[in-house]
């Protein structure tokens, strides 16, 4: 009690304010730093792998190549993705579309359950003169509208050029879902946050391939690192004629296609 007697009200308030502001700063800082980069995948890999496995995200820049001429529509990729990433039923991180086109320009497109069970023969009602499959997923665009519109910064780009979602920060407003021209995003009905293809970030940072690439029996899907001189995808991109989806949107997709048709959006 004696000590208290010596403290004037002014001093008490002053010290109190100092203590409060110190607490606030201490409180704010540690919350901000991990969360700025945190994602279920990114935080684990960045902190852990850089030291352990020598993974450095500055040494990679990934790209995805799809040769539509090789795709047989078996749906293994969709199944593999669904299992690997626990994708809820009725939602798709990747899917396969089937196109049937006639000489006269009639078009039939479908993707039953995202093509997860393959495709049954159909009758489009016209004489199709060409038909092909187009696997699709998040394009991890360089100038992506989904990151731009995220009001809380939960969608972000990694140094390897990937677009990820921090599900601990996402408020689930759905603005990114609206902003993606490719229909790659959805609101996960279990987590209630935005969800999409991560190119299996948890696998590739361990030197594995994305599940869909691993599962593809024909090599229609290829995953590559543009910073690797000997990379196959890098070489193909440099030498072949390559297409991207909805080029007019200027989002700079990093999923590249061989054998695209004008009917594919």
């Amino acid at each position: 009690m004696k000590i208290m007697d010596n403290v004037s009200r002014r001093e008490f308030l002053k010290d109190g304010c100092k203590l409060a502001s110190a607490c606030m700063i201490l409180n704010v800082l540690p919350i901000k730093i991990p969360n700025a980069f945190a994602s279920d995948e990114a935080s684990a890999t960045q902190a852990g792998l850089e030291a352990k496995d020598g993974y450095n995200w500055g040494n990679h820049y990934y790209a995805y190549l799809i040769d539509t001429r090789k795709c047989i529509g078996c749906g293994m990729c969709v199944q593999a993705c669904s299992r690997e990433n626990n994708v809820p039923d009725g939602f798709f991180r990747t899917w396969v579309e089937r196109y049937e086109i006639s000489e006269r320009g009639e078009v039939f497109v479908d993707s039953p359950h995202g093509g997860i069970n393959g495709f049954e023969a159909t009758n489009p009602g016209f004489n199709a003169t060409k038909a092909f499959f187009v696997p699709k997923m998040c394009n991890h665009c360089e100038h992506t509208p989904c990151i731009q519109v995220c009001p809380v910064g939960a969608s972000y780009a990694t140094k390897e050029g990937m677009v990820l979602v921090d599900s601990e920060r996402c408020v689930g407003c759905g603005y990114c879902v609206q902003a993606c021209p490719y229909g790659s995003r959805f609101i996960n009905p279990i987590t209630h946050t935005a969800d999409k293809c991560t190119w299996c970030y948890h696998r590739i940072t361990k030197g594995l391939k994305p599940a869909c690439v691993q599962a593809c029996p024909t090599g229609a899907r290829k995953f590559g690192d543009l910073k690797d001189e000997h990379d196959e995808v890098r070489k193909i991109l440099a030498s072949e004629r390559i297409g991207i989806l909805q080029a007019e949107k200027l989002t700079k997709p990093k999923c590249y296609y061989i054998g695209l048709d004008k009917e594919v959006r």
Binding site: K32, V149, P151, G153, V171, G172, H192
Partner: peptide, 18 residues
């Protein structure tokens, strides 16, 4: 909102390109 409890993030950590 999928996570209304995080609604204040829009004010606390706004991402101004949005």
């Amino acid at each position: 909102l999928g996570h209304p409890e995080r609604a204040m993030n829009i004010m606390i950590t706004p991402h101004f390109s949005s």
